[in-house]
Amino acid sequence: MTIHQSIPGEDTKPAYNYAYLDEQTKRMIRRALLKAVAVPGYQVPFGSREMPLARGWGTGGIQITAAIIGPDDKLKVIDQGADDTTNAVSIRRFFERTADATTTEMTEDATIIQTRHRIPEAPLTSGQIMVYQVPQPEPLRKLEPRELETRKMHAWAEYGLMQVKLYENIARFGEVTTTYDYPVSVNGRYVMAPSPIPKFDNPKMHMSPSLQLFGAGREKRIYAVPPHTSVRSLDFEDHPFRIQSWAEPCGLCGAKDSYLDEVVTDDQGGRMFVCSDSHYCETRREQGHRGTMLADASASGLVEAKS
């Protein structure tokens, strides 16, 4: 077995196998992944392992990434769209330390993109693998708490309860109020939780050229959507599925087509909207797009001007 020992000067630390997991665990996860790919949207139970961070912090996604990553891969990790938030930074560092992983923030360059709750704005390409961190893989759980029952509901494709829930939303509020983790039907068979991505991202899953893998570490489930697979957001003929829209573009890069986060800027009711996908926003600013609230740090003397 190849022992991973490239932590310089830390010879006393335990040496881990490449990508942290032992080979038997990887085989178990790999078998689950192959079955998940063969039955799109079906949740395959797997023996989720204790990881060196708490369950609920992306252990499902980390275990999938650890089982698939190799020396040729380039890994991008995003947390709510951003490359520079705590979860993303620590997971990236985890794979840099345990798997010598090459990491990147460029969506186009990455071969594996592990994500918490967003799909990048830049279109994904064939050959890329999306790895989603999933807190609750069971879309029916809030409607039916018993696993024995939800398993039967999936087995017999009894999804009336989900339609009733959406209908009750419409009856009470005039529209479906679910804005994230919006249930989808995969390959016309299984209803699947797309993980807590905003419903804005749901259409990107439909017929995506990239392979999409979902890992729920605490709930011990793996599921997948192969490339070019139909992913339909549940709706009604007279209340078709709609994604979020904003009245104003991104305050920094002026993008009108990206998912925007609302940022409170003062206690006077001031707020701005910025792209949640940090790489997308930066790329647009480098291309010269400027939003109305983009300050020029060098003009205000905060940093030295770029030569």
Partner: peptide
């Protein structure tokens, strides 16, 4: 000869084979 990397490479081929 090198189980970690040979099985990883083979798995990726199998994953692509079954997903496409």
């Amino acid at each position: 000869a090198d189980p970690v990397f040979q099985s990883q490479a083979a798995f990726r081929a199998l994953l692509t084979a079954l997903s496409e």
